[in-house]
Simulated assay, not measured.
Amino acid sequence: ALKKTMALTPQVLMCGKASPGGVHCLGFLDRRLLWSLATKRPLSLDISRCESCRPAVFAWLQQEVTACNDALARAGKKTIALVHVKPAPPQPKKPRKVERRSFFQALFHSTAEGLQEIAEAQIERSFRFDASAWLRKQQAEACELFCGLALRDGCTACGLCTVVCPTGAVVLERGEHAALHFAGASCTGCNLCALHCPQGALELVPHFAGQREFPLDR
């Protein structure tokens, strides 16, 4: 759905109630995803139906859009416009008439393989959207909307932070110029790196300040 949104001119992100091609719900959006979309091209967002459908999602989106717009304005970029997209007229569905007797005859005379195919066809497959992977693919630049990392004295370069990081946002470079590299756009703010640091040398900070490399004293 995000790929379809990026192909639109202008970009308009909406839910399925506004357009059959929209996402199921806009509640998955956060300020980081909005920033990544809006910094590439001007973005419009239709949340006009959210307040009556899911009030909590509506409040969340208002908060995230406001935060993203503040950052966009400070960066001199066009802010996200809130719009109301007129719903497309419903497409008439042609009813498929199936005789009850024919259906059960086909069912009971099916082979085991046929029954398996019928059962598999009824399984609804759903896929989880991985925001961090999408942001990495878009090569999004981190800003103050993303989390930052602070490194205090005491780091022993054990590398445990890189092992527990689920998105690969923390990378340890060993050798003569040992350093800890941090990819702010990939960080989800889970805080696992800081919680598992044996020396308590890592701290996740709420706003990315631009530091991506932390040289390590041998």
Score class of each variant (00 low, 15 high):
residue 1 A to T: 10
residue 6 M to H: 02
residue 8 L to S: 08
residue 8 L to Y: 01
residue 8 L to V: 03
residue 9 T to M: 01
residue 12 V to I: 14
residue 14 M to E: 07
residue 17 K to N: 01
residue 17 K to Y: 04
residue 19 S to P: 02
residue 19 S to C: 03
residue 19 S to I: 00
residue 20 P to D: 02
residue 22 G to C: 09
residue 24 H to F: 05
residue 25 C to H: 14
residue 26 L to F: 04
residue 27 G to H: 08
residue 28 F to Y: 12
residue 28 F to L: 12
residue 28 F to W: 05
residue 29 L to D: 05
residue 31 R to W: 15
residue 32 R to E: 12
residue 33 L to C: 02
residue 33 L to W: 08
residue 35 W to F: 06
residue 36 S to E: 04
residue 38 A to H: 02
residue 38 A to P: 00
residue 39 T to L: 02
residue 39 T to W: 00
residue 40 K to N: 05
residue 40 K to A: 07
residue 41 R to G: 01
residue 43 L to R: 04
residue 43 L to K: 03
residue 47 I to V: 08
residue 48 S to G: 01
residue 49 R to Q: 08
residue 50 C to F: 03
residue 51 E to Y: 03
residue 52 S to T: 04
residue 55 P to T: 02
residue 55 P to E: 15
residue 57 V to F: 12
residue 59 A to Q: 08
residue 59 A to D: 09
residue 61 L to W: 01
residue 63 Q to L: 09
residue 66 T to P: 00
residue 68 C to R: 10
residue 70 D to T: 13
residue 73 A to G: 03
residue 74 R to S: 10
residue 76 G to R: 03
residue 76 G to Y: 06
residue 76 G to P: 03
residue 78 K to F: 02
residue 78 K to C: 06
residue 81 A to I: 08
residue 82 L to M: 10
residue 86 K to R: 09
residue 87 P to Y: 03
residue 92 P to E: 02
residue 94 K to R: 05
residue 98 V to D: 09
residue 99 E to L: 13
residue 101 R to I: 10
residue 107 L to T: 09
residue 107 L to H: 08
residue 107 L to D: 08
residue 110 S to H: 08
residue 113 E to S: 11
residue 113 E to G: 09
residue 114 G to P: 12
residue 116 Q to Y: 11
residue 117 E to F: 06
residue 117 E to Y: 02
residue 118 I to N: 06
residue 121 A to T: 13
residue 122 Q to N: 14
residue 123 I to N: 14
residue 123 I to E: 14
residue 125 R to Q: 09
residue 132 S to C: 07
residue 135 L to T: 13
residue 136 R to L: 12
residue 137 K to P: 04
residue 137 K to V: 10
residue 138 Q to E: 15
residue 139 Q to R: 11
residue 141 E to S: 14
residue 141 E to A: 15
residue 145 L to C: 03
residue 146 F to T: 05
residue 146 F to P: 00
residue 146 F to D: 09
residue 147 C to E: 00
residue 149 L to E: 05
residue 151 L to I: 14
residue 152 R to C: 05
residue 152 R to N: 13
residue 155 C to D: 15
residue 157 A to Y: 04
residue 159 G to S: 11
residue 161 C to L: 11
residue 162 T to L: 07
residue 166 P to K: 01
residue 172 L to G: 13
residue 173 E to T: 10
residue 177 H to Y: 12
residue 178 A to Y: 01
residue 179 A to Q: 15
residue 179 A to F: 01
residue 181 H to T: 10
residue 183 A to P: 00
residue 184 G to V: 00
residue 184 G to T: 00
residue 185 A to W: 00
residue 186 S to Q: 15
residue 187 C to H: 10
residue 188 T to E: 13
residue 195 L to R: 12
residue 196 H to P: 02
residue 197 C to R: 12
residue 197 C to V: 10
residue 197 C to M: 13
residue 198 P to G: 10
residue 199 Q to C: 08
residue 199 Q to D: 14
residue 200 G to Q: 08
residue 200 G to A: 07
residue 200 G to E: 13
residue 203 E to P: 01
residue 204 L to G: 02
residue 205 V to Q: 09
residue 205 V to N: 01
residue 207 H to V: 04
residue 207 H to L: 06
residue 209 A to M: 03
residue 210 G to H: 10
residue 211 Q to S: 02
residue 212 R to N: 12
residue 212 R to H: 14
residue 216 L to G: 06
